[in-house]
Design a protein around this nucleic acid. Structure first.
Lengths: 214, 214, 214, 214
DNA sequence: GATGAATGAGCCTTCATTCAT
DNA sequence: TATGAATGAAGGCTCATTCAT
């Protein structure tokens, strides 16, 4: 099946796409690695094989670059996650487990987008910047999705009615983010698959050895 | 003219103590709030009612100031925590719960020292600095303490023998740090006491409604 | 296939002409408004509905664009002015008045070319650039024309013989340029026609109420 | 007469004063010479024998430096001028002449402050900056003073009642500014004293040879 | 004929750091 | 003990300029 008539595949558009991709990937990697404030545009540009000027050509400012990264993280990680949670039909505990499972799976191949979002939620605080607001927005969506699951779970008797929704959702997000960060921090030191399994098993079953009935 | 055994509290030393205290407290607060890289010595000095020069007089460099903060965090939070865990005589799950309980209690009054340590463990990565190494050391101590609890718990049958020690310890730390950060992030939005209670209840008992024996 | 004697107006040439015209007009307007150094080629190109590249295609450099503007200003404003002054047959004071009258009239329809020249004579100083030299050249022509009028006026007894030629010419140019700038600066604030009239009446008759003979 | 008791003449304050003075003088000179946008802080600092950092230490930003210059120009040139005009008791034409005479005299020793103000009134247009507003404010004061003189002059019959106040004031300012700029532009080329004399003689008496009565 | 990608020099600004006092 | 003056390196950003297409 040969390429259709398209006389020439628009070289400039391809170049543009490629440059933007290299810049965003480099930015993701460096921000995850060193933090937003600690990494310079110089470094990012070099890592992408371009110059600072190219970043401004495509993104106009450092903060705007960050905003683009957040947009990507939302599109590639958060949107699918929330859609996934909405689609699956399972008891609340299983849905919570799915939350962990979903990002873990995605995170194995492309950890930087998710980690960038998490790191920014921690680093960029009290700086009333646009990027900060963006992070808050995205997190609000995640919280809403989890709180919905919890509320429905409580209605259906799948979760203890005494569970405080907000606090529990906070716990879920906290565990999730902490886990991702810790995973990244310990790097090769731990077995990823084993870790993830431990996380949600613990989370679901509690850590105590179950006393045989009684 | 020899220094007398001066019963009256040395005024100079007191002043010195006070200045150092104000500087470290200001630094703790600002680093927790904005991150190490995002806050300048100027800000810290101003918040302490002193000038940049004073910081260099007492700490010699920005990194050294951070090191002092880490030392304080270790002395005031980590040392007591580890000693506490070593002293109490309880089953492993209970000890894990104590871990959460202990820092939560301390964190209510003086959250900044612990949060500073946690934030630094996330922000300062891949920068092979002395401060980074210091953070790693401190975290290693915490991990060791938890892994010891887990191993003993498995020996005694208090924890499932199939629980992978390292991964589980990672989970504990992750949950703990994530929880602290989330708590701080959500500020007044959530009920602290309720949140902490939720954390370790969930962690200990699992989130599922227990089927009445059967 | 030889070029025909093409009676139909060459389309390419027209397009070319049009683009150049739009660029120069945009440049005139922006330089008058913000000054040469404060306005970027980006702005000029955008205002002309083209891109930076087009400017380099037609003008090769920012300075060369300015040179072209100066050429236009000379051709459209200075050349006709000098020719006009040479042609009219009147006493020196009347010729001086004509100087003001002429540029005022022209300036009403196309103020930017004259203003650009004046502004450049003020902004671009001590920068030994080609454009600067060009400005000096043009001003030298104007000075020469006025000094000629003054000298002849003195010869003919139309002007006081004690009037220092150079200094008086300087005064004429100063008043003229200052007036144009002030006119532009105050925008709608003053009545143009009334202002111009005031200028040369004052200049010619002096500002004092004439004592009735005696 | 020995220096009074003052134990030591506060070296730091003197140093401060001196550095600020050198920086402002350098800034005045370079801005007058090349324009605000065309001269860099690097140049200014070098001309003052300091570094860029020193400028930020004392002035915080380039624009703020300019604001300080404008303040100085107002204090040293405009305030005295307006006070002078208010104090002298003379017919309106003579007061107008005093306006020229006063700034001319001051301008001989310290031309840069006045020229900086004038140049900024021309260069900084349509940039809604704080500095621009400052310039407008200062000019408004000058205009007010002149318009007052004109109005009173018309009341007392010293000036033609048909003279439009606003337009005439504009003319005065225009002539004044143009004259100052031209004087600066032509540098050594013209005789300052002779020029000034020509200006206000012309302005006062008109340029025509007075016909002997009738 | 004109664009869009990309560069590099230079700008304003920040900030940790030094040092005389 | 602590300050205030000053520096220099580096950061984000602008902009004239080049060039393949």
């Amino acid at each position: 099946m040969p390429e259709a008539a398209s006389p020439r595949p628009n070289k400039k558009a391809l170049l543009r796409e490629d440059s933007i991709h290299r810049l965003t990937q480099a930015a993701f990697a460096l921000i995850v690695d060193k933090g937003y404030h600690a990494c310079s545009l110089q470094e990012i540009a070099e890592a992408a094989g371009l110059t600072k000027g190219a970043i401004f050509f495509y993104f106009e400012s450092k903060e705007n670059l960050l905003l683009q990264l957040l947009d990507l993280a939302e599109k590639h990680m958060v949107d699918p996650l929330i859609q996934h949670l909405a689609e699956i039909d399972a008891p609340a505990p299983e849905k919570i487990a799915s939350f962990f499972r979903f990002t873990s799976k995605r995170g194995i191949d492309r950890p930087n987008e998710l980690l960038c979002l998490i790191k920014m939620s921690i680093e960029n605080r009290s700086t009333t910047s646009v990027a900060d607001e963006r992070v808050v927005q995205i997190y609000a969506r995640i919280y809403r999705a989890i709180e919905e699951i919890v509320d429905k779970g409580k209605e259906r008797g799948e979760l203890s009615a005494t569970l405080p929704t907000k606090e529990f959702a906070t716990l879920v997000v906290a565990t999730h983010d902490g886990m991702m960060l810790e995973w990244h921090r310990r790097g090769g030191g731990i077995d990823g698959r084993l870790f993830v399994q431990t996380v949600w098993q613990t989370f679901l079953d509690g850590i105590r050895v179950k006393q045989p009935n009684g």
